[in-house]
């Protein structure tokens, strides 16, 4: 079970994503932004950070990286892909997921422990959770407000493609309290909160996030 973790210049949470993969029993494989090479991995994680400084628009430059072209091709063939925070922004910019992330409505960067409701436990990354379960994981972002036009939102809601929703006060102004969504085939998931920072109660608020990485290992083993 080989899980690729991409490092762009400015990626920060790659070490955390790699650790989460290891905790779940997988093998973490480092992928470099400039390589047209996925190194035969079974799944890819696009981790958080500030790729290329995120100065133009979050994820706008990263989507053009050589490795992302490979990720887009592989995702179209059904490879599981997880985008966390900046990774979610990159997947949206790359059109693997619909919509976009904009500046938090209160304009501040927010780092806090956030309750999420699991709305779809049928994706490649969420089978370990009970439908409707609430999990506590860190949210840390300045541009986490999920936006999409009404028809896209209707489609996401209608097809059950909202994977996670914020519980309680909306932390960033996301439409429909959306924290994470999935592709039509349930293989690509993007979310703003950080499950990879919640794999051990020693260093995170809980170990609730580990379920995402365990789900992936399950899904690939079954497939």
């Amino acid at each position: 079970m080989r899980v690729g973790v991409i490092t762009f210049p400015g990626t920060l949470d790659d070490v955390d994503a790699e650790r989460a993969v290891r905790y779940a029993g997988g093998e973490a494989v480092k992928l470099w932004h400039a390589d047209h090479d996925l190194k035969d991995v079974d799944a890819v994680i696009v981790p958080g950070g500030f790729s290329y400084g995120d100065y133009l628009r979050c994820g706008a430059i990263a989507r053009f990286a050589p490795v992302m072209q490979e990720v887009v091709d592989a995702a179209k063939k059904g490879m599981p892909v997880l985008g966390i925070c900046n990774g979610f922004q990159i997947l949206c910019e790359a059109h693997l997921l619909p919509g976009a992330l904009i500046r938090n409505h209160k304009l501040h960067f927010v780092c806090r422990d956030q309750w999420l409701k699991v709305e779809n436990n049928a994706t490649a990354w969420t089978t370990r959770y009970d439908q409707g379960a609430e999990i506590l994981v860190p949210l840390k972002s300045g541009e986490g407000g999920y936006q999409a036009d009404q028809s896209t939102l209707d489609e996401l809601e209608g097809e059950g493609r909202v994977v996670f929703r914020y519980v309680g006060e909306n932390p960033n102004g996301s439409r429909n309290n959306i924290a994470g969504i999935t592709s039509a085939n349930g293989r690509v998931v993007g979310l703003m909160p950080h499950p990879e920072h919640a794999i051990d109660a020693l260093t995170g608020p809980t170990d609730d996030g580990l379920g995402m990485f365990l789900s992936l290992v399950d899904s690939v083993v079954k497939a």
């Binding site: 920060l12 949470d13 070490v15 955390d16 650790r19 501040h108 960067f109 927010v110 780092c111 806090r112 860190p138 840390k140 950080h194 990879e196 920072h197 020693l202 260093t203 995170g204």
Partner: peptide, 14 residues
């Protein structure tokens, strides 16, 4: 103040 600072990155914060 402190919720504007990332405390979790690198996964070593106890």
């Amino acid at each position: 103040v402190t919720q504007q600072y990332d405390r979790y990155v690198r996964g070593g914060t106890v």
